[in-house]
Amino acid sequence: MNFEAIKAIYLFEMARMRRTLLQSVISPVLSTSLYFVVFGSAIGGRIQEVEGVQYGAFIVPGLIMLTLLQNSISNASFGIYFPKFVGTIYEVLSAPISFVEIVIGYVGAAATKSLILGVIILATAFLFVPIEIRHPFWMVFFLVATSITFSLFGFIIGIWADGFEKLQLIPLLVVTPLVFLGGSFYSIHMLPPFWRDVTLFNPVLYLISGFRWSFYETADVSVGVSIAMIFFFLAICLGLVWWIFRTGYRLKA
């Protein structure tokens, strides 16, 4: 293992976050606060409680997941896409490092950023609503596992993308709708039976449900299934990354 190289990539990427502190931290915090105002206060005034949890508090895990997913993907995809775009990737390819080390460096940095954001948003949420965390260990587990998994996914998108449009395509067209329809702002038990069944095909549902369970012990699906699902996503992403590594897909002709 070339630890110096992993460190170099990791710190270089983290420096990028420090430089763009405003976009990196302020904007997700701001948009989350807006969600609190709109969904928590305006709608929460009418719904009051979902499964015994105050509505404002009920949506916190979903909001954190939304930010986590969006930021993991955008951080990691941009992190690897940008060197490809400006050409500085030549240095990474010619350095004495393996693909595994490249992935650890880039994905590690992206996941760290997401984690930091997740924690900041959780702290922000405490200002708005009463929150309890019944299973801190599992909460941290979902936070970390989701950050890593979706940073890997973002890395894959960054490798695949050959233009800035594609970089935005999946986060905007796929991930955001899945998060909104995955029970961020409601329990699927509030849906008609048909849509409830459809929602079960939404992978994000399992993440949000498990994460929410770690807070309030209320879940749309059993927590065991959620944990299994996150490992399943992780396995898919690792498989794809392994395939990219084997073929040099879009990195190395």
Binding site: E4, A5, K7, A8, I9, L11, F12, E91, P96
Partner: peptide, 12 residues
């Protein structure tokens, strides 16, 4: 930063 990064990338 960029010169030091290059050195690290090569494991030094």
């Amino acid at each position: 930063a960029t010169v030091n990064y290059s050195r690290g990338l090569f494991g030094k």
